[in-house]
Design a protein around this nucleic acid. Structure first.
Lengths: 248, 248
DNA sequence: GAGTGGTCTAGACCACTGA
DNA sequence: CAGTGGTCTAGACCACTCC
């Protein structure tokens, strides 16, 4: 077991990166490299803490991070093991930054519409504003490899009504919000499906009534205020959501 | 602030329920009752710990639980606040027990097929078994208020090939697995959409080609072994997935 | 009975926020 | 500057699993 623990020794105690985070990344890397194959057991928390010169709570927190992402599994009285499933960590389409990541793969976005207009009822409720408050509404069509695959309609809280929409061609919406100093913290999403509307059919070059994957989302900042509501539809052949659930 | 903290005083230190869990539930209840309205700030962790007679890590853990579920938001140097969004905690369709909960609302299930047969390639990969290993395959149609809305196809790891499928009419699959002593720990899901097949069209009383919402899932037990793979399709008018994301 | 993770304590120092 | 959450320590006791 000495061999394994030596892999984790290069921890930086002076830098700003928390020790539990550094350790979690090192364990994760060891799993992806195959040094910790699926089904193998980690050393117990006490010994691991001793060998690394860390306290047990710090080691526990590092392990907990990986348990939460579905990479490790813990059982009392038994130990901690690596999950057998292949690791598909790279795809996290349902993260807060899915749009941005996706745009890295295919940076083309066409701005179809932007206006400041009274909020529809659905938006009033989601953003917690008063009826008929003017909000910024934008509608974009996103391309991957020159194929349109996502229609994105967003309503932004009044504080963003002065957003420079010309930047949306080359930047994701969330990227713009971050540069304005907004911190996004919580998102509540609903994923469903329905038949394509006439607009979606025309934009996606698909028959009206063909299936589209839909996602509506309300986004909250770090003060707990709703800042954005979006209605998105995706061409299902080119987009899906991956989620990892962990029993609490 | 005394009034608030008094709400949390009835903690049971002798029972098996962890203190951080009891506290988290009490804070959650206070939010739902309106004692802690959206946007209001909690007392700081130190004072809260003093008043409750708990250590700060215990209080922090309780708060962290609620931050993870999107109910609270924390900012260093500022404090902890209640998120403004309405609480839709009751619907958690993407939990490990979604099928079971759903069946509580509408307990009718029709068993369409069950057989032990060599696993298709897709299942071989998902369950991490060798090619052509015989696995139990079941296909069920689930009804809500006598309307069929979900087609559930599942492949079970060989250890479950002797499952009593007659129980599936009145019980969820996961309920059966639990009664066999299996603990489900991690699930990896993919949610998408596509056109209904001829079979789905007939079962759902919808035209072939109409949209269906799809979910495929691999389930792992607490040893990290894959125990089940499922391909589900849903009538989108009657089913959708709700997800809360929290920035890490 | 030995070994494991689950919970909890009582401190400490630091980084960040906002007045 | 005072106040807040973020991190970390060095222990302790318990519940559970497996032999």
């Amino acid at each position: 077991m000495d061999k394994i623990s030596q892999l984790f020794l290069d921890l930086d105690r002076s830098g700003p990166v928390p020790l539990y985070f550094q350790l979690a990344r090192r364990i994760e890397a060891a799993i992806e490299r195959g040094d910790l194959p699926p089904g193998s057991k980690l050393e117990n928390e006490i010994k691991l803490a001793e060998e690394l010169g860390l306290s047990r709570p710090t080691v526990r927190r590092a392990i907990q991070e990986l348990v939460d992402t579905g990479l490790l599994v813990r059982r009392r009285g038994v130990g901690t093991q690596v999950v057998h499933g292949r690791v598909n960590r790279k795809v996290e389409l349902t993260s807060l930054y899915d749009d941005l990541k996706r745009s890295n793969m295919s940076p083309t976005t066409m701005l179809l519409l932007h206006e400041v207009a009274p909020a529809p009822d659905e938006v009033v409720e989601a953003l917690g504003i008063t009826t008929a408050t003017p909000v910024l509404r934008i509608k974009r069509l996103r391309y991957a490899n020159e194929t349109p695959f996502a229609l994105l309609e967003n309503f932004l809280s009044p504080q963003f009504s002065d957003l420079d929409v010309s930047l949306l061609h080359d930047h994701g919406l969330y990227q713009l919000l971050r540069t304005r100093g907004t911190t996004m913290r919580v998102a509540k999403q609903r994923i469903g499906a329905r038949a394509a509307t006439a607009e979606e059919g025309a934009l996606f070059h698909q028959p009206v009534g063909s299936p589209v994957l839909t996602m509506s989302r309300t986004l909250y900042d770090d003060s707990g205020n709703a800042i954005e509501f979006g209605n998105h539809s995706y061409l299902p052949d080119m987009y899906s959501f991956e989620i990892t659930l962990v029993e609490k």
